[in-house]
Amino acid sequence: MILNFRKPMAFLKKDFLMEISYKFSFVLQFASIFFSVVMFYFVAKLLGDAPSVQSSLSEYGGDYFSFVLIGIAFSNFLSVGLGSFATSIRSEQMIGTLEAMLVTPTRLSNIVLSSSQWSFAFTSLRVGVYLLIGGLFFGVSFAGAAVLPALLALVLTVVAFSSLGIISASFIMVYKRGDPIAFVLATSSTLLGGVYYPISVLPGWLQSLSYLFPITYSLRAIRLSLLQGAGFDEVGSDLLALLAFSCITIPISLFCFRLAVRRAKRDGSLAHY
């Protein structure tokens, strides 16, 4: 059992050591969070208590800054879920370490999943910093937050986005660059998923489209739990939607990945970039 955790932990340790070896970049990433939060704070001030803002955000308490803070913080999981698997493969291909890993008795699926752990851990840290800055310096209150539903929504979000990320990694495995999945999903999710504005401001037909993307359910559930203290009964339908989405996409993603690995091994392009 210990050996089962040893491999993922080794990846986490290796990626952490690599990350902190670039000290300036490490610090800069946290500084960028602060500037991003400050920028949206002033945008929120500009919008103020306008009646249209109040009515659009009434479901979440009416405060735009709290709304957008959670949107930008948790949409990080979208980027990382969609991109980290493909990025980790491509990075190992380019560094030249992928073949050295593949001759060890570790499955490629294990290598890909473990390689993206650091991205998720680092993103969780970044999201924590977003919420901390918002709470400490800009008066966002999480006093009545329902933590358990929010955590469950977060887990389901990571699983849903990751399954799409694995499909994206399959493209990278075969075509090396130009993955259409990540591009289309990242752009559409940001546009339609309610990251910067509630989906209620979208025209009706775009609102209908937004329900095809898991981020719509994730952000709604997390916002309601953290800002309004909504329990499982209130966010249950969103959680079920995320679960259903994962149940459909996980088998598809694993199938695509298996096909991609087989093709890359047949073509001899596994370590090419």
Partner: peptide, 30 residues
């Protein structure tokens, strides 16, 4: 074991020992 002359099969920013520790884990060593 595959031993190639490819220098780029290691993580250059990690120490030799850290590299070996990582690959030992992939070989399933406690």
């Amino acid at each position: 074991a595959l031993i190639s002359s490819e220098e780029r099969s290691f993580y250059w920013r990690l120490s030799g020992r850290q590299n070996l520790d990582f690959f030992a884990a992939l070989h399933g060593l406690s």
